[in-house]
Design a protein around this nucleic acid. Structure first.
Length: 283
DNA sequence: AGACGTACCTGAGTGC
DNA sequence: TGCACTCAGGTACGTC
């Protein structure tokens, strides 16, 4: 489920306990998530210090002092939870979620960071920091929506001639990296653009208008700690609360809240994903 | 090259 | 209660 705001929320939660900390112990409880873990992952993590925690699109990147970067993707249901270690004090019964605790990192200063992912669409990999941008999973990503290289001109170029619906285009991580189903629905609603409209048929003016809306939606969502529908939790286990601000996503049958609009939110399916929109004000 | 469907996996919710 | 079914925030990959 995590899109850019949820991943950024997780990253910010991890920074205080992980950045600058040394990994004293790594428990890898299964051989794979979506793909096999890299060879000897636990050994390569043990003793490493995390110099910096970055985010690229929906990936968290932990630069290690070993010259490698730990790449983390949360997939649909991944969580990173921080527990304070209480070694030898009290070993209580496993919490229900513990069933899917696949990787556990313990820092020298006594924090436990648990990667839990029931659906196992998540991923972890280790690769040289120097060439991390060339990593297979990162190489084709488009611009960061909150970064400087993302603007109306670059988006116009990226959408040029595209026969695909704008909904599908904005989900394409090569066009802009980090949006997912929720935030594309929210962006298009705020922009009053129909998700069904072909990308190539949008005027330059409307494409330019998308840029600040994308930034606003993502920024608002990050401030709210992301959206918690089912799985997303912040690193302290708390819910995000941006879902209370949804104007379109998951609001089928509800009244449209756009100024002066009396329409009703509809749900359609595009490339196999639900799109929520108001046919009255989104054209 | 680009568009589309399929696959990966578990769990929550719904209707019978 | 139980069972069958649908749906879910992502994305790589095969096929056309």
């Amino acid at each position: 489920m995590p899109e850019l705001p949820e991943v950024e929320t997780v990253r910010r939660g991890l920074v205080p306990v992980l950045e600058g900390a040394r990994i004293a112990r790594a428990d890898v409880n299964r051989p794979d998530l979506r793909w096999p873990f890299p060879d000897r992952m636990a050994e390569r993590l043990t003793g490493a210090r995390v110099d910096r925690l970055r985010r690229r699109s929906k990936y968290i990147l932990a630069d290690l002092d070993t010259g490698e970067t730990l790449l983390i993707h949360l997939g649909m249901s991944g969580r990173m939870l921080i527990e304070s270690a209480a070694p030898g004090v009290f070993h209580h019964a496993k919490l229900p979620q513990a069933k899917h605790d696949h990787v556990v990192l313990q820092t020298e200063n006594g924090a436990r960071i648990v990667f839990n992912d029931p659906r196992r669409f998540g991923a972890m990999d280790l690769a040289p920091t120097d060439h991390i941008d060339a990593h297979k999973l990162l190489a084709k990503l488009g611009p960061e929506p909150l970064g400087n290289s993302f603007d109306g001109f670059s988006l116009t170029t990226a959408l040029e001639g595209k026969a695909t619906p704008i909904k599908t285009a904005l989900l394409d991580q090569r066009i802009v990296a980090g949006l997912g189903n929720i935030y594309v629905c929210e962006v298009l609603h705020r922009a009053r653009i129909s998700p069904r409209r072909k990308a190539r048929n949008l005027s330059a003016k409307r494409i330019h208008s998308l840029v600040p809306i994308i930034r606003d939606v993502l920024t608002d969502a990050i401030e709210a700690g992301g959206s918690s529908l089912r799985d997303h939790r912040q690193t302290n286990g708390e819910l995000g609360y941006f879902q209370h601000t949804f104007r379109a996503y998951d609001r089928e049958g509800a009244a449209c809240t756009s100024d002066g609009c009396t329409g009703t939110i509809r749900r359609i399916v595009q490339s196999g994903r639900s799109s929520f929109y108001c046919p009255t004000c989104q054209r």
